[in-house]
């Protein structure tokens, strides 16, 4: 039943019209994640290339990128620091951590440092609720963060 074309198709199943797509299209996210990983963002040119590869319109690639918060069409810092603002973290004082990062990096949340090293963001629960306040630096989960530890965390990334 899987068809070889790269575009989703409508089929009738159980009397209902449903969309199916083939294996190739299902590789879209891993491909985009790979570009995001290597370059830190997905440029217009990349979008066009990916669109050609899958035989879909670039707008469709764009719409997938904008859906996922870990994919970005804008250039971001080399390292992304995400501070969790879930309830457990807020109760444990995550706002203080945000403030300290803002102070040390001299940016506001949502921004990237001038040298392109760091982007500071908020995120929801990262599964570190029992070690709040917690942050994610790139792939790393770091718990029990204190304002005092912030500088050291930043330095560790630079090495």
């Amino acid at each position: 039943m899987v068809n070889e074309c790269a575009v989703p198709k409508k089929i009738i199943k159980g009397g209902k019209e449903v969309m199916v797509c083939d294996e190739t299209r299902s590789r879209l996210l891993p491909v985009l994640q790979d570009i995001q990983d290597k370059k830190g963002y997905i440029s217009d040119k990349n979008m066009q290339e990916v669109a050609d590869m899958f035989g879909i319109h670039p707008v469709e690639v764009f719409s997938v990128i904008t859906f996922y918060s870990f994919l970005s069409e804008k250039k971001k810092g080399k390292h992304i620091i995400r501070v969790s603002n879930c309830v457990s973290n807020v109760m444990a004082g995550s706002e203080k951590i945000v403030k300290e990062f803002e102070k040390v990096l001299m940016i506001e949340i949502g921004q990237t440092t001038k040298d392109g090293e760091f982007t500071l963001e908020r995120t929801s629960c990262i599964g570190m609720c029992n070690e709040a306040p917690a942050i994610m630096v790139d792939d790393k989960l770091i718990g029990k963060v204190t304002p005092q530890r912030v500088k050291k965390i930043i330095q560790e990334q630079k090495q």
Binding site: M1, V2, P8, I11, K13, G14, K16, V18, V20, C21, D22, E23, R25, S26, R27, L28, L29, F54, S63, V64, F67, Y68
Partner: peptide, 22 residues
């Protein structure tokens, strides 16, 4: 998984019948 925006589908059909790639 199919490479789309993660928007929930109408149910039915349920995944046990029409799931990944149909």
């Amino acid at each position: 998984l199919e490479g789309n925006r993660g928007e929930p589908r109408n149910r039915p059909p349920f995944p046990v019948n029409t799931g990944y790639n149909g």
